[in-house]
Design a protein around this nucleic acid. Structure first.
Lengths: 238, 238
DNA sequence: AGCACTTGAACTGTAGTACAGTTGAACGAA
DNA sequence: TTCGTTCAACTGTACTACAGTTCAAGTGCT
């Protein structure tokens, strides 16, 4: 069963179980927008659709929970997370703390080189006009900054934050508006890169903080505007 | 089923399911040393012992995985984590990054007050000669430092690190050796407290970093000594 | 004795069925 | 409209079953 997704199996580290494949598939679907925030993942429906047992779906969903895209509610099962001002603030705050901490460390030549590459990718991406891709590369740039902390555990944690944020951005269609000003986007990232490259760490910290605060503010405003016009699918349950 | 553990249900936020209770119970047992590193959590054994279904045990173990005390291996199930030089290094590195980042921020009066309370608790605990408790309060002191970052997400992540570390310390019987020098323990923490209280952030960062590096070195040495004398239960599988 | 090979018991991963309890929405009464 | 009531859908849990995997004990060969 589920052999159709044989291509997915990424790292060969773990022989991949059905539940794991299922979790990956569902993760992709959520990130692709197949579910909207607040949606419940109905176990029987998924089970019959994909030809697996409900147990297996439950396990897959538990694995999904690790990724942060769904949370469990008793007697309601797995529910897709919803962007709220609180959840956005939580993610952006954690990002700010991690990225400024990373920017505060003097960067090695190798780290700077990696950041330059990330910036080049971003510049290339903005020319492609593929907004989804731009977001991807943008987040990769910031992950590179966090990697300066040289802590695999923190990198992993940051990746979790990023998955969550990426979903919020997708749901809020933030990408569409991002396209208007690729120049501003590049300018801000260039400022960070330059500060890391030449300036004292202080400067880099300021640049990173400003960029993240800007983003947080803009995305939060989009969310607020969205919830006022169509209070339907985005509302989180009490 | 499992009504015997009715007292456990902590927060009333989530009505607690059997699987959740089970996860809590198993977590306690692991932290209490009922399993040694590398042990497998045998599903049928646990199921029959506690009078629950194997599905439920599996779910509970998936929840346990969230806490970081076990990891899954295909066709071997849940395995209790083992302290290795790598895992210790990973935990201590993440701790160092987070705590120094926190110490680098100017602390508010309220934050300083909380840290003073944590220190007082530690001083009291050292007099009790209850080594397990001393470790607990020690870790709480450091969690207080991290809380200066004012990020709930990071606090949660740090709690995860702490659970893992606490288990390692228990397994390595680090507490027993800690007892010898309560004076040194208090002195180091006092230095941190004073630095946070009066000194410039720089000083606090240095104090925190030194303390964590000391700890990491000592614990790692204990691990190495342990694995050489009794290469049995502590060895992680390839 | 040492080494490769086989074998079998124990266990995991998955499927499938069943049922009590909960939720949520539709329905109907006030 | 608002408040109950009802009911279908769904979750949480239990139980059974079985193929595939692991691991250690045993077996045979050198």
């Amino acid at each position: 069963m589920l052999d159709s997704m044989a291509g997915i199996e990424g790292a060969i580290l773990h022989r991949t179980t059905t539940a794991q494949q299922l979790a990956d598939l569902l993760s992709e679907r959520i990130l692709a927008g197949a579910f909207t925030p607040g949606d419940r993942l109905r176990e029987s429906a998924i089970a019959t659709e994909l030809g697996v047992a409900r147990n297996t779906v439950r396990e897959a969903v538990r694995v999904l929970e690790l990724g942060g895209l769904v949370r469990y509610e008793v007697n309601r099962g797995a529910v897709v997370i919803s962007p709220t001002t609180e959840s956005l603030d939580a993610v952006y705050t954690a990002r700010e703390r991690l990225e400024t901490a990373a920017a505060a460390r003097p960067a090695t030549a190798e780290q700077i080189a990696r950041l330059e590459t990330a910036y080049t990718n971003l510049a290339t991406a903005t020319r492609s006009h593929d907004t989804r891709h731009v977001v991807e590369v943008d987040l990769a740039f910031h992950a590179t900054i966090v990697s300066f902390l040289e802590s695999a555990r923190l990198d992993l944690f940051y990746a979790e934050l990023t998955r969550e944020l990426r979903y919020y951005l997708m749901v809020l269609s933030v990408e569409d508006r991002e396209l208007d000003k690729p120049r501003a986007l590049l300018r801000e990232h260039k400022a960070i890169l330059d500060a890391v490259r030449t300036g004292p760490p202080e400067t880099a910290v300021v640049a990173v903080r400003a960029h993240i605060h800007d983003n947080a503010k803009r995305v939060t405003e989009i969310l607020i505007a969205r919830t006022q016009t169509q209070p339907g699918p985005l509302a989180a349950r009490p």
